[in-house]
Design a protein around this nucleic acid. Structure first.
Lengths: 106, 106
DNA sequence: TGCCTAATTGGCACTATAGCCAAATAGACA
DNA sequence: TGTCTATTTGGCTATAGTGCCAATTAGGCA
């Protein structure tokens, strides 16, 4: 693997890594429905606000979400809805895995 | 977030995590072109074979690839080509990020 | 100005992941 | 059977990610 190939896959991996956490996937799912403030996301996730804020900053640095201040609150929105297509694929993998498991038991 | 929602997003995260490494993305990219033995992947990646083998086992446990023994060699293939759609989205994120960077300099 | 709320940042402990080497396993084939 | 090759597994160290608490920042509002 040469240097530029490596750089390409590292760049891709940074994006994928930003998504590789259940809480962040939950946040992306929620933001795909409507843009939401940190306080509301904190309530929905049920973790410390500092934790949620750090997850959001991971998503933001990857360029997946953007933020906007409205009064005291900061609202986040999904910049890249195409990520949702990926989730349907992930869902497909999960189903395939499940039916494979099932066939082993059958 | 209730228990079953949590379980759902954890399951999804397991799949995404399995992809969240440059070497594994490279392997998936390669396997999308043709099924390949570990020895060839090792050569292409340029790491220790044990390292590549462990990456492959991560992808396999996630249900993303499958393996088949042919003589002395083990060939891996991509089980879930829909993952490639995701990469085009990731590429889109990268391009968007790049043009945002560019506009800051402009 | 001073206080209140929303959010971010720093710091720390804990856990998970990565990659190498060495050892073990599994076939092929003389 | 014994040896060779391809692959996997164990074990270790180093590095990265997570989540909480505490402290800080930033804006709204009396």
């Amino acid at each position: 693997m040469n240097r530029s190939t490596q750089a390409l896959f590292e760049a891709r991996a940074r994006i994928v890594k930003a998504l590789a956490h259940p809480t962040r996937l939950f946040i992306v799912d929620r933001l795909s429905k409507e843009s939401t403030c940190v306080c509301e996301l904190t309530r929905l996730v049920g973790a410390d606000m500092s934790t949620v804020s750090k997850h959001l900053s991971v998503l933001k640095s990857a360029g997946i979400v953007s933020d906007e201040k409205r009064g005291l609150q900061v609202f986040y929105r999904l910049k890249t809805p195409c990520i949702l297509n990926f989730f349907s694929c992930v869902e497909g993998v999960l189903k395939a895995n499940a039916s494979e498991q099932a066939s082993l038991v059958r």
